[in-house]
Design a protein around this nucleic acid. Sequence first.
DNA 1: CGCTAGATTGACTGGTCAGTCAGCCAGCGA
DNA 2: TCGCTGGCTGACTGACCAGTCAATCTAGCG
Lengths: 206, 206
Amino acid sequence: MAIGSPTEKRRAILDAAIRVFARQGFHAARVSDITEEAGVAYGLVYHYFDSKDQMLNELFTERWALLLDAIRRADTELDSPRDKLEAAAGFIIESYRHDPELMKVIIVEVTRAANSFGRTHLPEIREAYDAIAKIVADAQAAGEFRSDVSAEFAAMLFYGAIEQLLTGWIFEVVPGGDEDYERAKGLVVETICGGLEPRAAERVAG
Amino acid sequence: MAIGSPTEKRRAILDAAIRVFARQGFHAARVSDITEEAGVAYGLVYHYFDSKDQMLNELFTERWALLLDAIRRADTELDSPRDKLEAAAGFIIESYRHDPELMKVIIVEVTRAANSFGRTHLPEIREAYDAIAKIVADAQAAGEFRSDVSAEFAAMLFYGAIEQLLTGWIFEVVPGGDEDYERAKGLVVETICGGLEPRAAERVAG
DNA sequence: CGCTAGATTGACTGGTCAGTCAGCCAGCGA
DNA sequence: TCGCTGGCTGACTGACCAGTCAATCTAGCG
């Protein structure tokens, strides 16, 4: 028997699932691939999980809660909208740097899989959009962002831009390395905020 | 027998496939659902197509060629980068307005399905990114866009923002109606370009 | 007309997997 | 020492569905 404590196996299965889902995609991943990767018997999966789906759900839910929390904390703990958005973008990018396989699974199999798991988790995903939209709305109310763009609209552009960027890194469409990640944090925000802030000429008081 | 000419059936099958893929998603769509929707016998699909996959490939390829063409024409026929990008965004948004089900299928099942069809069509998808990046790069060379953001990076943000917007409409996360579509064309470009253009204070000649 | 080619039909097959289940084994308490 | 409990095993089953194919129909054509 392995070295781990009794239910380390559960974690081992989940970790193996991340690797297999990232490598093959959820649909192409057989449960037997996961158990093989984890070095456990086929049936053990069903001792700890109800279904293959549940594994993905758990991976997503766990991570997404952290993301939501990070965005909301950024909103309460920081002052300028730019800093808030940069913290949000930074958290997502750091998540990717820290565990690219997990983020790949979350984005590719849930967030962007709107017809399968994305639909199931739409409420949670929408919470993130809303949290970003709130940051924008507050900035608009304070006159720091232009008000002729709806906050939800701006939130979609912002989130979509980041997600597309990660997707580009994941599939190596665009070069990704430590410096790229670092630079990206600032540039995403600068680019989007640059368009959201009132132009000097049009500024109308605060 | 129906009213149509001999191989109208092929088109009927393809149209039915759009509706079924849009409604259920590609994976959940059975070939029998499509034939039922089209009102033809099961086997007829395999008279006109090699496989279920090929139907989706054909739907995508057909439409994507138009998109690519539109972006490239915008690039050659228009002058300012803003107009070019607005034409590109406008074409995508108009495609959605004209046939939302087809665009849903293309985005959800191909463009954002990076682990299945997205991978197969990555080269074509990348051509679109490249075409957008070229517009940005030219604008940078002319001093109309800031040069400290790589053109490919900017292209990803731009494309990602639009796609996320469509996704929001598709899944009714964000309100979508004729006026919204019309306004969106301008706002997407304004928001992103606003961040890409040099600020007045920093402008350095052309 | 009879003939051929292409369109059309739908029952059937073969392969694939998620999920089940009957039972094994290790450790522990009595 | 003997059960007992719960982690653990992996062969097996049942459902599902893409793709096949032999047969039927229809339209033109000589």
